[in-house]
Computed example of a mutant assay.
Amino acid sequence: MERTLQVLDGKWATLVVRELMPGPKRFTELRAAVGGPSAKTLTDRLRSLEHQGILTRTVYAEVPPRVVYELTDQGRSLNSILMAMLAWGEANPAPAG
């Protein structure tokens, strides 16, 4: 459990992994999809996930440069955890108010 919490460290990391499940995305696509964290916050989370082997970052030599993020096999293995979180959230909505 500790390792999972280390990887899914907070809201942004979890949402980034969720958004990359269907396939690769560029930085701006990710930022919009997860709710617009600051560029620095998202960059920090992406670097952390890359360092932990959860995603890869590919830079294409184009002008302007294109950077694409994609889950590794290890990152995709988190799908069952995210699905369990989704099921729990649907079964236990936040209290009103």
Rank of each mutant, 00 (worst) to 15 (best):
S48R: 13
L49C: 07
L42H: 03
L82C: 02
P65F: 00
T58P: 05
L78R: 04
G75P: 14
V67W: 00
V68H: 01
E62R: 11
M85D: 06
L46F: 03
E62I: 04
T41G: 03
T41W: 02
V67M: 06
G53R: 10
E62G: 04
G75E: 05
D73H: 13
M83C: 01
V67H: 01
L71Q: 05
I81K: 00
Y69L: 05
R47W: 01
V67P: 03
S48L: 02
N92M: 05
Q52V: 08
N92V: 03
V63N: 04
V59C: 09
D44L: 07
P65L: 04
L78C: 04
W88L: 13
H51L: 12
D73F: 13
R66P: 00
R47I: 00
N92L: 03
Q74D: 10
S77H: 14
M83L: 11
P93F: 07
I54S: 02
G89N: 14
E50Y: 09
V59T: 14
Y60L: 15
W88H: 15
L86Y: 14
A87R: 09
L42T: 03
P64C: 07
R47N: 10
A61R: 14
E90A: 13
L55W: 01
Q74F: 13
E70G: 11
V68W: 01
L49F: 09
S80V: 13
T58R: 07
L86M: 10
T41P: 01
G89L: 12
L49Y: 04
G75N: 10
R76Q: 13
T58E: 10
G75I: 08
E70S: 15
G53S: 05
K40D: 10
T72R: 11
N79I: 01
I54A: 00
L55E: 00
L86W: 12
L71P: 11
G53W: 08
L55A: 02
M85Y: 08
G75F: 06
Y60N: 05
T56V: 15
S48M: 07
S80W: 08
T41E: 04
L82S: 00
N79F: 01
L55Y: 02
V59P: 00
T72L: 08
S48H: 10
T56G: 13
E62D: 09
N92C: 02
L42K: 01
V68A: 01
R47C: 00
E70K: 15
L86T: 14
H51F: 10
R45W: 05
L82G: 00
G89Q: 12
T56D: 11
N92S: 07
A91M: 05
